[in-house]
Amino acid sequence: MTATPFSSVALVFVGSFIGSFGAVYLKSGSQCLRHGLRYIFNWRLGLGVGLFVLSSLFFVQGIRHGELSVLYPMVSLGYIWTLLWSRLFFGEPFTRGKFVGLALILVGVFFVGLGSR
């Protein structure tokens, strides 16, 4: 059993951060679709997808080495960043349901990672 190298942790951490901004731009770009599906090609959605692709390159590279029980929950750090950005940029309220739901999901992802080694 090899320890998780720092480079993997760093790659996945950066990937989760980049991915959370991908989600922010997908959300803001999706509002253009209110006027019709033909507005699917807008720069916000393009940037969102670009950030997702970039983050997935970090993830693919990051999870090649190291413990999934460490790296899987770190991928899910993106959900926490996104909770913060949702409030900051879109004024979505913090609710108890969001915190409890997210906490259960993070605990769940940790256990899935623990069982995947």
């Binding site: 609710t95 108890r96 349901g97 969001k98 409890v100 739901g101 997210l102 906490a103 259960l104 999901i105 605990v107 769940g108 992802v109 940790f110 256990f111 899935v112 990672g113 623990l114 069982g115 995947s116």
Partner: peptide, 26 residues
């Protein structure tokens, strides 16, 4: 194989998603 860790994990995720889904209806 699905071991107890994975079983606990996927159960916890499903509960979390259910709670998020319920809070969205309010």
């Amino acid at each position: 194989t699905i071991n107890p860790f994975k079983l606990i994990g996927i159960s916890s995720i499903v509960c979390g998603v259910a709670i998020l889904g319920r809070s969205g209806k309010q």
